[in-house]
Design a protein around this nucleic acid. Structure first.
Lengths: 228, 228
DNA sequence: CGCTATTATCGTCAACATGACGACAAGCGT
DNA sequence: ACGCTTGTCGTCATGTTGACGATAATAGCG
């Protein structure tokens, strides 16, 4: 059996919402290949490391974040023969949805790290096949917001319904009716739980604070098709 | 950077419906490790082969089927350090949903291949971590039947509404109301198209024949929560 | 041939969900 | 106090759902 020499890496699609835009964490490459180009954070899987561990370690190294913050899941694996000029490299991509937190820490092999609005990233901007991986990650996030409570992963531990609505509006690039959205979110079993507290964000009537509820799936779901 | 020697394989979760049960194709291993144990079909990725190609090739080798038959997608990747006693092996699992077709062909490295009802497969029956991979594949199939027209992948090119309903009932392990199911399936945009023909299956009034429609997503979806 | 068993398909209805939108609540700045 | 802004509740017509009745179209049988 021909067993070729293969390197295995993990790459991270880290998404957050900053300044009203869906943003991804990118690293400016400090080494060849693609030196100076933007790329997804990532790195080699160590010899005695499970894939999830490797991804969690990279997340910590690049951002200082704990994988339990927000949401973390395997996205897909990419292994086309020519995707890395150094040789056969198979990469397992992970997707993380994170609240807006302090700036990332630049890793050792990166000249810089920055959050970039995903709408500003164009085909060919990223190294390797990272355009495709990023696009797949965004699509996964969009789809999962319909049927799961993952939108809360973009929010801090306590949040208002309006903040949650802005997550949906930003990720889906739509406007949602605040009154219907409020009804659906508070009506979906286990989506959010009131903490009892209230806050004033900017102007207007104080809003109730909520935290994430115990549900893993939304019933009923919030479908993108309609106007909510 | 420590680049350990890693082998990359693909494993296939092949699901079909035979004799009213959801069944998976298993191979009895003809070589060590786990000689004589049942396992998912699969094999090493060749040096110049993309992952999807490798999975499609394995599908052809094990079953003689073309990947365009039914449905074919990447499932997930498994790479825990100890999952294969031969060394570090990362496997990319693929999921295929297939119509009930002639028996599989035993591959060269397999002492035999057989369809086995997934309910008869118990924890520890399969080699490696294939129990887990199979369970993940089944769960993916269950979930995708809600929001996509993939149930048609289990059917021949032309099928009746009752046959499609049996797919749902088998995969979900529920009973569905024939009248409501008929209404929903024929009402969901692009799910199925009438061919004009009719057939008599066993007894009763002849049923209209349908083929798969153009939709990639179901609107509205058929949710598992209710009774349909 | 009529009867019955069987399956397919259409219809009805109450309960619930949805989208559009009005109304009021509860803060702020002036 | 007044208007502005944002949050929350309510209403209503329409659509979807689940439960289930009714009818259609066949085979098998006496």
């Amino acid at each position: 059996m021909t067993t070729s020499v293969v390197s295995v890496t993990v790459d991270l699609v880290l998404l957050t919402i900053r300044q009203g835009a869906l943003q991804a964490l990118l690293i400016r490459r400090g080494i060849e290949p693609y030196l100076g180009k933007w790329a997804l954070p990532g790195g080699f899987v160590l010899p005695d490391e499970d894939l999830d561990e490797a991804a969690a370690r990279e997340l910590r190294e690049e951002t200082g974040l704990d994988p339990r913050t927000g949401h973390f899941e395997q996205l897909a694996t990419y292994g086309a023969p020519g995707r890395d000029p150094r040789g056969r490299v198979v990469t397992i991509a992970y997707l993380a949805l994170l609240p807006d937190l302090p700036s990332p820490v630049a890793g050792s092999d990166a000249a810089g790290a920055a959050w970039r609005p995903v709408d500003d990233i164009e085909a060919g901007d990223l190294a390797f096949d990272h355009d495709r991986i990023l696009a797949d990650g965004i699509e996964r996030a969009r789809a999962k917001l319909e049927y799961t409570p993952l939108a809360t992963a973009f929010c801090p531990p306590e949040f208002t319904v309006a903040e949650l609505r802005q997550v949906y509006e930003t990720v889906w690039r739509t406007r949602l009716d605040p009154r219907n959205f409020h009804r659906k979110v508070t009506g979906a079993e286990g989506f959010v739980e009131a903490t009892g507290g209230t806050v004033i964000r900017e102007r207007g009537r104080p809003a109730q604070l909520f935290r994430r509820g115990p549900a893993a799936l939304l019933h009923p779901p919030l479908l993108r098709s309609g106007q909510v």
